[in-house]
Design a protein around this nucleic acid. Structure first.
Lengths: 341, 341
DNA sequence: TTGTATGCGTTATCAA
DNA sequence: TTGATAACGCATACAA
């Protein structure tokens, strides 16, 4: 049934021309002019045989693959990340690249980098924490022109270009809003899940900074994503003076909308009034957050211009070489005020 | 800075051996025995030069890439799909394949298939609706051994092996439960979003079947994911006799947890009692569904054994050829009863 | 135990 | 306007 795939030589034989001519026609080479008649005959033969060029062979010959590799292992999947990837894919293909996502979660560190390098992508776009100096060396010595990290401000920025999300400012934005709406204490929730914890700590720094600037009491609490863990925390809060009966309003930045929803559910179960006793701010602006009652105030990450800028920067680094390592601060954010504060 | 990547020939020169020896050492060839001393010298040279084999060249030479291509465009991303992909990746790499996800959303139909075929993957695992007969022909004639669809029962099953999710049974399970809990009418919600609508219709068929079998009134309603659209629907329901005051209990299968949450929020705003007047069943068992009050009854899609089975089947098809096209019904589901029914 | 030689499918240089 | 031919990096049959 399925014999070996047709090669350009098969097409050439079928069309009665040389193999080089096939290559010229199919790649629209400017250099050599081909008669319209030959051109048509080649096209027709290629279509009929179902000819598809062999990417590996082309890469071998030309020395570049046009592949942009994105090893997405522990990036938190959500509407945000998915939307970003879709847009990025679009932008990259507009510039002539093909974006592929590569798993191989098995492999760590340099071994992972080697696996990526085997495909000889022209660029790698990876979570910043995976881009150790060793790993980046492997990638560069395999001829990969652009290595770009996605991460938080300050991570591995001397090694590679990094697309940064300014987590600290996210926390600060939430905190400022909580104070403006009357909160007299500030609490930052830090998720205990791997991959979230680091970002949680950075966001908490922003909250703490604002608290200090305003001379307001600050607490931070580690929290696992479960109702029982949250309920237990509530008891501790009660002991610390935060309660459903007091007159002071307590502000909580819940790290993201998921944690905010968890918190609000448990608060409601325990007789706390939101936003009366406790004001809650989430992050991500999930579609579901609007469905909560009270509606959830949240920090929306603005992703609109990020993909285009990122793709463009990648293209520049690829073409001009890695002369300098610009830090890209592509993510902006904005507070979306609703009813929970 | 970054010269051309080192080749196996560079390693050979550095180690003072022939290029073939390098290949033998690095691939642990049984055929030819290499002295431990040479072996060590080659390894050391490879490490020092940062040698990484060229996947394209290897593919060209051996005739197979070990790549499993998964073009995930419009698959609904959620914890379910992500978990499935992660597990699948693990299983496939255990079997010696590398899974890569390929975007290229730009391209449609045969053009997309051609883009996939360029990479000469050994297998393609794609949404069933993208696997038209033409597209599959392109893939097969490019030498791709296994083409497997992911979709609903009955889709393109004569063309390729298909991993099916039995949407109709999901709807039926939800409906049976609603009746058992006392609902006297049944309604199926069908999302209007692209990519979800088809599955919604299939699930609705299951609801309708159960309704007919029990002689219970059945309605189905198209619904966009917005509060205003849902509120408008509620007015229509009131006109149809479903209200927050009646004595009869109305059962709604809301397609998934997102729609269920939307519905429950709007129901609460409009004075409907859940589950008193309206009982709601979702699907997916999202972590957030437990946080709703009342807690959401849902149909959980059981994904545990799917990835291993899928990987294994793929491996068999690759090795034995496409003699037959087994239909795989890998997804099971189970109702998780909570408070909303 | 190791080296030599060949070909995989493609593009590009040069000659016709 | 088109055709021979070489080279890309690697794996392997065969020779030494």
């Amino acid at each position: 049934m399925s014999a070996k795939p047709p090669t350009s030589l098969d097409v050439a034989r079928d069309a009665g021309v040389s193999q080089a001519t096939v290559s010229y026609v199919l790649n629209n080479r400017e250099g050599a002019r081909i008669s319209d008649e030959t051109r048509a005959r080649v096209q027709e033969a290629a279509d009929r045989l179902g000819y598809v060029p062999h990417a590996g062979a082309r890469t071998l010959r030309t020395g570049h693959s046009g592949l942009v590799l994105v090893p997405l292992a522990d990036i938190p999947y959500g509407p945000l990340a998915v939307g970003l990837m879709e847009e990025l894919d679009r932008e990259l293909s507009r510039l002539g690249y093909s974006m592929i996502q590569y798993g191989a979660r098995r492999l760590k560190g340099v071994a992972a980098a080697r696996a990526w390098a085997e495909l000889r992508p022209v660029a790698v776009l990876a979570p910043a924490e995976r881009l150790t100096r060793q790993a980046v060396n492997v990638l560069h010595s395999a001829g990969i022109r652009a290595v770009i990290g996605i991460g938080a401000v300050g991570w591995s920025s001397e090694i590679v270009s990094t697309v940064t999300m300014d987590h600290e400012e996210i926390g600060a934005t939430a905190a400022e809003h909580l104070l403006a709406r009357g909160s007299r204490t500030l609490t930052a929730i830090i998720p205990t899940e791997d991959g979230l914890r680091d970002m949680g700590l950075l966001r908490a720094v922003g909250v703490q900074r604002v608290a200090a600037a305003h001379g307001v009491p600050y607490t931070q609490v580690d929290l696992a994503f479960s109702e029982t863990a949250t309920a237990a925390r509530l008891d501790a809060w009660r002991a610390a003076g935060i309660s459903g009966e007091g007159r002071t309003k307590h502000g909580v930045f819940a790290y993201n909308d998921d944690y905010a929803m968890l918190l609000m559910a448990v608060l409601a179960d325990n007789g706390f009034a939101v936003p009366g006793n406790v004001a809650v701010v989430g992050c991500d602006d999930l579609p579901l957050a609007k469905l909560l009652r009270p509606r959830l105030t949240t920090v929306r990450l603005n992703v609109t211009d990020a993909p285009a800028l990122l793709a463009q920067t990648l293209d520049e680094v690829v073409k001009e070489g890695v002369t300098r390592q610009p830090r890209l601060a592509l993510w902006t954010h904005a507070l979306v005020e609703r009813d929970s504060t």
